[in-house]
Design a protein around this nucleic acid. Sequence first.
DNA 1: CCATATATCTGACTTTAGTCAGGTATATGG
DNA 2: CCATATACCTGACTAAAGTCAGATATATGG
Lengths: 298, 298
Amino acid sequence: MDSELIAAARRFNRTVTQRVGALDDEYMARGRPLAQARLLWEIGPGGAEVAALRARLGLDSGYLSRLLRTLESDGLVTVAPADQVGGDARVRAAVLTDAGRAEWAELDKRSDELAWSILEPLSEQRRERLVAAMAEVERLLIASMVVIEPCPPGDPRARACVRAYARDIARRFDDGFDPALSNPVHDEELVPPAGVFLLATLNAEPVGCGAVKLHRDAPAEIKRVWVADSVRGLGIGRRMLDELERYAAERGWGAIRLDTNGNLTEAIAMYRSAGYREIEPYNTEYYAHHWFEKHLAP
Amino acid sequence: MDSELIAAARRFNRTVTQRVGALDDEYMARGRPLAQARLLWEIGPGGAEVAALRARLGLDSGYLSRLLRTLESDGLVTVAPADQVGGDARVRAAVLTDAGRAEWAELDKRSDELAWSILEPLSEQRRERLVAAMAEVERLLIASMVVIEPCPPGDPRARACVRAYARDIARRFDDGFDPALSNPVHDEELVPPAGVFLLATLNAEPVGCGAVKLHRDAPAEIKRVWVADSVRGLGIGRRMLDELERYAAERGWGAIRLDTNGNLTEAIAMYRSAGYREIEPYNTEYYAHHWFEKHLAP
DNA sequence: CCATATATCTGACTTTAGTCAGGTATATGG
DNA sequence: CCATATACCTGACTAAAGTCAGATATATGG
């Protein structure tokens, strides 16, 4: 723990978060209780399902219901069954009324004003620097908020990642990707003690995955490393790799391998920079052009 | 208003302040009501006067009193007359007890932990980048929070600035600074309509000043431009200059002048970059080596 | 000494935020 | 069709946050 870095991060938390956060709330509230204002904002011009609002704002179901009733009786919102095709009749969605839309537009305007009130006193050059630094902080904080945890491969979030992974490689491989031609990976192989499936999430949304098979009497094998576009370039892939290696090393494996397609150039660069060395083919994977191995410290 | 910059600042406000802010509060609270925790934190190991706490936390006087009673009855704090020499017997100060100090240390530790929990998931390189960007955001936000407003030259904050200004130049001039040798500036000259004194404040603390005399039938004259060390390099001096020029221009003056000492090299550079041109001496100021003038657009 | 201002305090109050235990209607797997 | 789960709801409650009108003691200028 570098105490200078920590001190700087603390100063930032204090000055920036507290002050800008308080300003933000003040601008948002407009005489209305903050919870209501936030809810109105979150519903937005396009409306939102009640469950989604609950998740995004982290509210108690009863509390949210009551807030919605208040906004409804103020004529800002209507709550009605969410009529998606073939939808679940229990699910309801909140939609802004005309008055609600006007109020939302006002909040939007005030949000712009707040942002401008921060930038306005600065010279043009400093404005640009501030915005660039803000963007950097934002991206890196997002990176630091990504959590990597074991997850059953059957979990819907895990499935969604694997599907996205398949779509991605189908687009990048020269001849597409037909799972039938590729060596299959079975769920049981990615469940302890045979292996593990790790899921990367950002605010509970899946944004990446990776798996390792712990082969008996053979090096461990990495599979399905994928990172969503939205969080690429933030070091998530590398962290995933580290976690998978650590998992294998902690269980006594001394080496770890993987195969990959020649078109995945950034992935290959990442493997090399992470200490992987190219080796002779150790399997007959149809889509593989390169095979890599890394020795693991015990 | 550049809408791209605004959008970026808004994103920052939302993601960063809301999330980090919420985390911050959570770490701070420790089962105790947040207001109490914040108050305990603000009192700090050195103690603090009640009035100072009220100002810093922006609390209602009655509310603060009650919070202090609660902390007192929890054995964390004692409130007693603030015995400064020759002090005001009404003023009271809060001081942490041993238990309070222990609790404060715990909050301090948790603050470190929170900061580290943000940095920890990142690679060393990204940590450094994040901290650098945080520092940049912080500095520029501080710059943007400085407010420049007219202030009576007799106001204690104005007096404090002028004293600091005199101390500063005394240190920088080759032969010190003796006000008796310098052309005097009287308060009445810095009060409308004869002129104006502008005060720069950061969270109500004075951090800079500047004044302009509106001479009859002669160019306006800038005096006493000073910026506190703590906010130097943030463009405050330049903003002060702009405001003074604007003040004179709006009232019909077409030119503005100033004299300065040759040792104040950054100030001279600033005048030049702001469009001032060196002219012949227009007064007999003992400490002046350079005289500048700028034409003002109507 | 008096009138007025100031620093802090107490008491009485309201609003906001949030929790928890059910209740109703719909969905789902067998 | 039944048991169980789920999505949203209502009612009853608590704690926290904040406001306001005085009360008390001290300061300050005349």
